[in-house]
Every structure is written in structure tokens, then in C-alpha cells.
Write a protein that binds this DNA or RNA. Structure first.
Length: 839
DNA sequence: CTAGGGTTAG
């Protein structure tokens, strides 16, 4: 059985536990009457605002203290277990009715979602001859509904039919709802057809179910059936239908429903007007929505929120916020939900100051601890790149929901702390808290950033089991994750299983093929994408150009670049120009690359010059190389890559004095080459190696294995005189022996002795693959017959039978790099490393 | 049971 790797205990475990404890208190708090001082605060707030705007109060505050006695009942537990009743019962307690305790237990089990136990207990009750009360059936059916357990639902229904002669209309509706919510419309229809007495509720349930499942026509047939039966539709019937009229093609039906509502005399009800208004918003008829909204006599915060949603969906954040101010001025009582949309508008504008002011309102109103206001607050701060504030906002939420955690996971991913994101996920999972498809999407993303195939595959399996793979979002994340973990085969499978891939999904698979060096497949996919009528975007073209770059397709790249604007209406960005510079430079067309840098409509950035410099190094053009490096060092004097490339350029041209000067400069500025490191995952455990590493428990075996191949390899190289040191790691002269124990060789040797012969050996490396090790891997694949995959800072290399998929067409580490921190290095514990992952 | 609104992702 697949199990998500259990990570070491983590402060979040404690946090989760604490939140759990706080949860019970929060429930009690929620039962208390609304806090009167908060409503008073709203009034003061508006007064202040009105004063500020020099307006006279339009109408007296209609806010009143809303007292009730709910607090008195707050202490009554919502369920009673058998144990507690028997142990705490004293002689004063009146004798319980027969089967009362058993039925209470059944209700309690249902409320706790313990369906399996409930079913077992039901069977025990059967044996004991205790009858099941209608109340128990209601709870059981509700639990099946919530857990979408059709099988248990069917069992309960069957049992109900056998034992209860004349079930109430309400109980029959419970059965109907259970089938609808468990997704079996066939069963639902059968129950509906056989119902002795259909009330309005029954019609609502079945009609909404059909509408929700997309069978709008069927639900409207039922609507006219109902009218034929002489049943007067009430507002619930209408709102049940209106809820599912959600796109512009349905606006005509919406208008018809609207006119029905007017004729039936229900048009003064706030809820139904709100529903009509929201229907028009979702169908894109904004004028209609405003018309309905303005004609409403009484507008509460629900109505206002609905219209604000319309504005934010149309990306009119300012208008949404104007509406909010208007709402405050009219003295509408605010609730938590208003703030979610207000904060979304602030996040859309990336207006940190405005959001902070809204945060202030929230605190004043006492909504800070409420999930509904607190979660959007967390999201707002994450979107405004203010992670510390997001953490503080999260801490204040008394009962965080899966959405709150989801926002935090995004926050951690955004600051590059993917490990923490994964830890929260495992923590939530181990504590059986609710997970959702957004969380899984974020986790797939974290797995590709960490290049953790093992965790990624487990999370995937886990998500399948819970059916929490989001259509397109989750699917695309999986494609990227597998391709970035070196498994293009899985990525392809994940992609092929998407029924209708969109731009992002296509881009993910094209990009995957590009980085694995399958240029022709990538370009073919690009063609297929257009055949499917999916439009490419800027990112798609980066993937297409990357494919050309890794295979030296200069003319094709030029053609794609030229067609971007004219044929596809996508404006090239600096990323596209840098791809093009890279393509020219790799192909040795250095003058073309330089011309492009000078003439492109953007100021060249670090990447532009690095691409040119890389080309100058491979094609030994000292003249241009100097220009490139001067510009590069001017843009960023701290970037070691510039010095290293320049050093190599001088060294390869035999200019040793200049080379030494560059090295001296590096030392003076205290710049160091990044430590080269390789890792391989075997049976879920990551084994990391640095050059000459002897910390691994199987060190002896590894070196013995390496010796075998190094020997044959050295013989071969000495014969051909191939032992060159032209890679990045040769910046500092190193001994020949050191070359033989480069980290990737250690990882390969370990892979050979610890994995089955029929599987590929997949190695990850933080820097670019060195020429000698690249040759070594080719040699190894030839004499062992194993497939070897090496992902370096630049791309994937697939070695097979002495050949590499890159056709030796890889040059230098460049392009954007993502800094990732990885803990727990093998043998160097608690050391934090920064790996450059280019993909 | 008994209406209408929001927040998270590729």
C-alpha cells in the first residue's frame, strides 16, 4: 500500500493540535449571541467615514442588539456516547426508553462520520431486536450524503424499506437527497417516482440535482410537470434553478425564470432577488444585474457581496471597492463574507496599504479570528508577498479550514520553502484533517520544485484515492511534476489522460519534451495543440524555443519567433529574446547573437549576456566574450557565474595571466563557486554526494564499483588524449584523482549497486554536467546496458548504449534559476544548501 | 429540513 512518507515531527504538528483544541472553544463561542459591541463599532465606523466624506447621515442606524438565549444551551454536548451516559447516570435520572441509548449512539456515530462502526452497530441492534428510530435514519442518511458513500446509503435505504412501513415525507426526502448527493440520479429518480407523497422539498431536491449535474433541460421539464400537478412553486424552487444558470448561453432561460418569479408575486423577497441578480452576473448580463439590484427595496450584505463578485470577476477591482464604500455609507450591516471579496479586490490591485486598512476594520469588528475573514486575509498577504503578515493573520484564526491551510501552503511555496509546504501537508494528513484538490495541486508543484519523484508519486496516488485531482489545475501540475522528476513517460501518461487539455496543460507537456531533448516531439505537440484549437501563450513559446535551443534548430526557432506576434498575437518578451540569443550563441552564430542583444526592444539582462558569454566560451571568441563578461559583471558584480565563464574563456585560449587575474578578482570579492552535489533516490531515501564524499555507509562498495569503470575509462581517455577539464568545476585546478570521484560518479556507482538492472538510474545534479562525467555516463551506459538519466542545472540527459539524448549539444548553465533549500544532507547534517534548479 | 454571497491552485 502506498503511504505518504512520514516526515520528522514538526512545529506544525503542535500548531495543528492546538488549533484542534481551540476548535471546541470556538464552537461554544459561535453559539453565543452576536457581540453587540461589534455592531456598535460598525455604526461608529460609518459615522467616521461619513464625517470624513462630509456627508450627513442618510438614515439612522438600523442596527440593534440582537439578544437571545442561545448562550444558555452552549454547554449541551451535541452527542452522547453510551459510555458517558451509563457512567454519569445517577439515581435521579428517569429510566430511559427502550433503545433510546442505542439510537443516540447511532446518531453520535453518524455525526462523527463513523459509517463503518454505525453499520456494525446497526447489525448488533438487529440481533438484539432493538428498533431503529426515524431520527437515527435521518442522521445515517445525512452521514452517507456528506461522505458520498453510495454503498452504505443503499444499505440504509434497503433496511429502511424493510423495517419502516410508512416513512414520513421528510424521511423519504432524506433518502432522495442521499442518492442525489451520492451522485446516483438513477436511484434518486426511482425513489422520486415511487414516493407516496411528494412535497415541495422533494421537487426542490430532484430538480436541483438534475440542474447541478448539468441536465438543465430535465430540471425544467420537472418544473413544468410540477406546475401541471397544480403545485405552486415557492422561492426555494426558483433559487434552486437560478443557482445553476451560470454562463452567458443560459441568460435567456434566466430571463424566463425571472419573469415567472415576477408573475408569481415572489419578487419582493430579498433572497430571490439576490439569486436573480447573481444569476445575471454569472451569465454576464451586468446591466440586468444592476437593474435588479437597484430596484431592491432592502439590500443586505449578501446582495452587495454578490454584485461585488461580479465586479471582481470582470477585473474591475476599483468598482468593487467603490461599491464597498457605498455599502458602508448606506449603513448595511457587515458580515465576514463581505471581506473575502473586498480583500480579493485588494489582492488583485496588490495594494498593500488598502488591504492593511481593511485588515484594521476586520480587527475592529472582531472578525479577525473568523475563518471566513481570516483566510482571505492570509491569502491577501501572500499575494502581496508579505509572508510574515500572512503567518500572523493565520495565527489569529481560531478554527482554520482546509482553505486556510491551503493559503499557507501557497505562502510557503511562494517564498521557496517547499519543504515546509510539504510538512504542513503531511501534518494535515496525519491528523486526518480535511484536504482539498487545491492543496494537492500545490503539493505536486512543491514536489517538482524539490524534484522529489517519490513523494510526488505518493501524493498522486493519495489524491487518486480521495478523488482530489483538480481538472486541468491538478492535471497540469502532475505533468510538470513528473517531467521535472525525470519521468517523461509518466508525464506523457498524465497528459494523455486529460480529456480536453488547455493552454497550460499543453505547455507543460511541450516544455517537458523540450527539456528532455525531444525537440521533434515537442514541436509535433505544438502542432497538435493548434489542431485542437488551443491557443499558445507566451510561456508556450518559451517551451517551443527551448526545444529548438536544445537541438540546435536555428532556422525553425527564427521562424517561430517571427510568427509569434503576426500569427498568434503573442508579444515576445525578454525571455523569448534570451532564448533566441542562446540559440544563436550555442550554434556559434555569435555575431547574430550580439546583434540581437543590441537591437532587441528590451535592455539586455544578466541572462542575455550569460547566453552570449557561454557561446563565446564554447566557440572560443575572446573578443565578444570580453564584451559580454564586462556587461555581465556590471549588471551583477556578485554573480560568480560571470567570472567562471570568463576564467574558462581565458584558460581555453591559453591566456593564463588573464585567467589568473579573474581568479584573483573572485577571491578578492570573496566569491565562491557553488559546491557541486549530486543525488539519487533509492527506495524513497535520498542519497546525496559531494566530490570525494566518504560519508555513505556503503562507501567501500561504491568506490570499488567506481574503480572498475574508472580504470577502463582512463585507459580509453589516455589513448585518445581526451582528459580535458573544460567544465565549470575546473575553475580551480584540481587533481586528476578528484575528477574520478565527482559527485555524479559516486551517485551513478551507488545507483548501479542498489537498483534493479531493469530500471533507469536517475541522478540529479545542482550544476551543469561536466564533460568528463558526461563521457563517463555514456561509457557506463554502454558497458552495463543500463539506462541512465542525469538532470543537470540545464536539462535532462538520457544515456543509452553509449549515446546521450543531448547529442553532446549542451553548453552552459544559464537561464533563470530557482533557489531551493534542502535539509538533512547526507553526512553533512543540518547544513543548508542552495541548489540551482533551472527547470 | 426551510432560500441568496466569499476565500485556496496549474
Amino acid at each position: 500500500m502506498l503511504k505518504v512518507a512520514c516526515l520528522p515531527s514538526h512545529p506544525f504538528e503542535k500548531l495543528v493540535a492546538r488549533k484542534k483544541r481551540q476548535g471546541s472553544e470556538a464552537v461554544v463561542e459561535a453559539l453565543l449571541p452576536p457581540c453587540s459591541h461589534s455592531t456598535r463599532l460598525v455604526a461608529t465606523l460609518i459615522q467616521k467615514l461619513q464625517h470624513h466624506l462630509a456627508l450627513s447621515p442618510s438614515n439612522p442606524s438600523r442596527l440593534s442588539a440582537n439578544n437571545n438565549d442561545a448562550a444558555k444551551f452552549a454547554q449541551i454536548p451535541s452527542w452522547v456516547s453510551l459510555k458517558r451516559t451509563s457512567s454519569s447516570s445517577s439515581e435521579k435520572t428517569p429510566p430511559l426508553q427502550l433503545g433510546r441509548v442505542e439510537n443516540l449512539h447511532l446518531v453520535s456515530l453518524s455525526k462523527q462520520a463513523k459509517l463503518k462502526e454505525a453499520r456494525e452497530f446497526l447489525e448488533q441492534m438487529d440481533k438484539a431486536g432493538v428498533s431503529v428510530s426515524p431520527r437515527s435514519y435521518e442522521s445515517l442518511l445525512e452521514a452517507c450524503r456528506n461522505l458520498e458513500s453510495l454503498s452504505v446509503g443503499r444499505y440504509i435505504h434497503e433496511r429502511l424499506r424493510r423495517t419502516v412501513k410508512n416513512p414520513s415525507g421528510f424521511l423519504e426526502n432524506c433518502v432522495l437527497r442521499m442518492y442525489c448527493d451520492c451522485g446516483s440520479l438513477v436511484d434518486a429518480q426511482m425513489v422520486f417516482d415511487e414516493m407516496a407523497e411528494r412535497n415541495l422539498g422533494s421537487w426542490v431536491v430532484i430538480m436541483s440535482a438534475y440542474a447541478q449535474a448539468g441536465f438543465l433541460e430535465k430540471s425544467f421539464w420537472l418544473f413544468s410537470d410540477m406546475i401541471e400537478f397544480g403545485i405552486e412553486p415557492n422561492s426555494v424552487i426558483y433559487t434552486g434553478l437560478l443557482k445553476y444558470l451560470v454562463n452567458p448561453s443560459l441568460v435567456e432561460i434566466g430571463r424566463q425564470v425571472h419573469s415567472h418569479v415576477i408573475r408569481s408575486g415572489l419578487s419582493s423577497i430579498v433572497a430571490i432577488n439576490t439569486a436573480i441578480c447573481n444569476m445575471y452576473v454569472k451569465c454576464g448580463w451586468f446591466d440586468g444585474a444592476k437593474l435588479v439590484f437597484n430596484q431592491m427595496d432592502e439590500k443586505d450584505s449578501v446582495a452587495w457581496t454578490g454584485l461585488m463578485v461580479g465586479y471582481t470577476q470582470a477585473r474591475k477591482q476599483r468598482d468593487a471597492l467603490d461599491l464597498f464604500v457605498k455599502m458602508l455609507m448606506e449603513g448595511v450591516e457587515l458580515d465576514q463574507f463581505v471581506f473575502s471579496i473586498v480583500l480579493k479586490a485588494c489582492a488583485g490591485l496588490e495594494d498593500l496599504n488598502l488591504g492593511r486598512q481593511i485588515h484594521g476594520y476586520i480587527v475592529k469588528l472582531g472578525f479577525e479570528t473568523d475563518v471566513s475573514a481570516g483566510t482571505p486575509l492570509v491569502d491577501f498577504y501572500v499575494k502581496c508577498l508579505n509572508f510574515e503578515s500572512a503567518c500572523r493573520a493565520f495565527e489569529r484564526i481560531s478554527e482554520p479550514s482546509d482553505v486556510s491551510w491551503s493559503a499557507m501552503i501557497c505562502g510557503y511555496s511562494q517564498i521557496g520553502n517547499y519543504e515546509e509546504a510539504v510538512k504542513i501537508f503531511t501534518s494535515l494528513r496525519n491528523n486526518s484533517l480535511v484536504l482539498n484538490s487545491h492543496i494537492y495541486t500545490s503539493i505536486f508543484q512543491a514536489c517538482f520544485a524539490l524534484a522529489d519523484f517519490n513523494l510526488g508519486a505518493q501524493a498522486h496516488a493519495d489524491a487518486i484515492k480521495r478523488s482530489l485531482i483538480s481538472h486541468l489545475y491538478g492535471d497540469s501540475a502532475l505533468v510538470s511534476m513528473y517531467s521535472k522528476c525525470g519521468r517523461l513517460d509518466y508525464a506523457t501518461r498524465a497528459f494523455e489522460s486529460i480529456p480536453a487539455p488547455d493552454t497550460v496543460a499543453w505547455t507543460a507537456i511541450i516544455s517537458g519534451n523540450a527539456h528532455h531533448g525531444n525537440a521533434s516531439e515537442a514541436l509535433e505537440l505544438f502542432g497538435r495543440m493548434q489542431d485542437c484549437g488551443v491557443r499558445p501563450n507566451a510561456v508556450t513559446f518559451v517551451a517551443v524555443l527551448t526545444a529548438c535551443s536544445h537541438s540546435g534548430l536555428v532556422t525553425e526557432a527564427k521562424r517561430y519567433m517571427d510568427s509569434m506576434h503576426s500569427q498568434y498575437g503573442v508579444d515576445p518578451t525578454i525571455d523569448h529574446y534570451n532564448c533566441m540569443i542562446d540559440i544563436y550563441a550555442r550554434a556559434g552564430l555569435l555575431q547574430e547573437a550580439f546583434e540581437l542583444i543590441k537591437n532587441m526592444p528590451f535592455d539586455p539582462d544578466k541572462t542575455s549576456w550569460k547566453c552570449l558569454l557561454g557561446g563565446c566560451w564554447t566557440h572560443k571568441n575572446l573578443e565578444l566574450g570580453k564584451i559580454a563578461s564586462e556587461n555581465l559583471l556590471q549588471l551583477d558584480p556578485e554573480d560568480a557565474a560571470g567570472y567562471i565563464l570568463l576564467f574558462n574563456l581565458y584558460a581555453s585560449s591559453g591566456k593564463w595571466e588573464e585567467a589568473a587575474r579573474v581568479r584573483k578578482l573572485m577571491t578578492e570579492r570573496n566569491l565562491k563557486k557553488e559546491l557541486s552535489c549530486s543525488w539519487i533516490t533509492v527506495k524513497g531515501k535520498v542519497h546525496r554526494f559531494i566530490v570525494g564524499d566518504k560519508h555513505h555507509p556503503q562507501t567501500e562498495e561504491i568506490y570499488l564499483k567506481l574503480e572498475e569503470f574508472n580504470h577502463s575509462m582512463t585507459m580509453m581517455n589516455d589513448e585518445n588524449g581526451l582528459l580535458t577539464k573544460e567544465d565549470v568545476s575546473s575553475t580551480f585546478p584540481e587533481r586528476k584523482e578528484q575528477l574520478l570521484v565527482h559527485s555524479e560518479r559516486l551517485a551513478m556507482a551507488f545507483g548501479l549497486i542498489s537498483t534493479p538492472t531493469n530500471t533507469p538510474i536517475i541522478i540529479f545534479k545542482n550544476l551543469r554536467a561536466c564533460k568528463d562525467c558526461h563521457d563517463f555516463a555514456k561509457h557506463l551506459s554502454d558497458i552495463t546496458g543500463r539506462r541512465i538519466v542525469v538532470r543537470d542545472a540545464c536539462r535532462f540527459h538520457h544515456f543509452q548504449s553509449g549515446q546521450c539524448s543531448c547529442n553532446d549539444y549542451w553548453v552552459h548553465a544559464s537561464m533563470s534559476s530557482v533557489s531551493v533549500t534542502i535539509n538533512g544532507l547526507l553526512g553533512v547534517e543540518n547544513l543548508r544548501f542552495h541548489f540551482h534548479l533551472c527547470l
